[in-house]
Amino acid sequence: MLLLQCPWCGDRSEEEFACGGEGDIVRPLVPEELDDRAWGDYVFMRRNEKGIHFERWRHAHGCGRWFNVARSTVTHEILASYQVGDDRPELPE
């Protein structure tokens, strides 16, 4: 069971949240110039990291806002929680 830190509401149980998958995927700025391969890579291909995963969560049963989490997909340890648009935080080794 995860204890997530919503940047607005504080520590809350995993049950209040919805996981939005891999974060930091930047939408192409000039979409009309993309070919099928670039679209496929953007829409479907994922890093699916074994280790530290930077991902998006939404406080679905709370404030309803999106935020970013750095979490280990091996130990489930939550290393950082930060707002959308912020730079990735420095993580301890």
Partner: peptide, 13 residues
């Protein structure tokens, strides 16, 4: 479970 994981264990909810 809704989140990605390689831990071979999930959450109780």
């Amino acid at each position: 479970d809704g989140y990605s994981s390689y831990a071979q264990r999930g959450s109780l909810p």
